[in-house]
Amino acid sequence: MDPGDTLKHAIETEARALGFAAVGVTRPDAVAQAGARLRAWVADGQHGEMGWMADRIDWRADPGALWPAARSVIMLADAYTPAADPMAVLDRPRRAAISVYAQGVDYHDTVKKRLKRLGRWLIERAGGEIKVFVDTAPVMEKPLAAAAGVGWQGKHTNLVARDGGSWFFLGAIFTTLDLPPDAPGRDHCGACRRCLDICPTDAFPAPYRLDARRCISYLTIELKGPIPRELRPLMGNRIYGCDDCLAVCPWNKFALAANAVYRARPETGSPRLADIACLDDAGFREVFAGSPIKRIGRGRFLRNVAVAIGNSGEPRLIPSARRLARDADPLVRAHGVWALGRLLPPEAIEAEAAAAEEADPMVLDEWTAAVSRQAPSAAG
Rank of each mutant, 00 (worst) to 15 (best):
F254E: 14
R209G: 00
F204M: 04
C249R: 10
C199L: 07
P266A: 03
P250N: 13
R214E: 03
I216N: 01
R214Y: 08
E230H: 14
F254W: 11
R265F: 10
A274S: 14
R265Q: 13
L273F: 09
A203N: 02
P271A: 07
I221L: 03
F204T: 01
M235R: 02
N259L: 00
V248C: 14
L256F: 04
N252S: 10
P205I: 05
R238D: 00
D243Q: 13
A264E: 12
A203V: 02
A247I: 08
L219A: 06
G225Q: 14
L219K: 06
L210V: 11
N252I: 06
K253S: 13
R232K: 15
A274I: 06
R213L: 03
D244T: 04
R229V: 15
Y218D: 00
L196K: 07
C245V: 10
C242D: 15
G269F: 12
Y218A: 04
R229K: 00
L234R: 15
Y240S: 11
I239D: 01
L234S: 12
T201E: 00
A258F: 06
A206T: 09
E222Q: 12
S270D: 15
C242I: 02
R214K: 13
A264R: 08
P205L: 10
T220R: 01
R238W: 09
M235F: 03
G241F: 08
F254S: 13
Y218L: 07
R209S: 03
L223N: 08
G236A: 09
P200G: 11
A260H: 14
I216Q: 01
T201M: 01
P271R: 07
P200R: 13
V261G: 00
R232F: 10
C245Q: 12
C249T: 11
L210T: 02
A255L: 04
K224Q: 15
D211E: 14
C242P: 08
I227D: 02
L234I: 05
V248L: 13
Y208W: 14
P266L: 06
G236Y: 07
F254I: 00
C199Q: 06
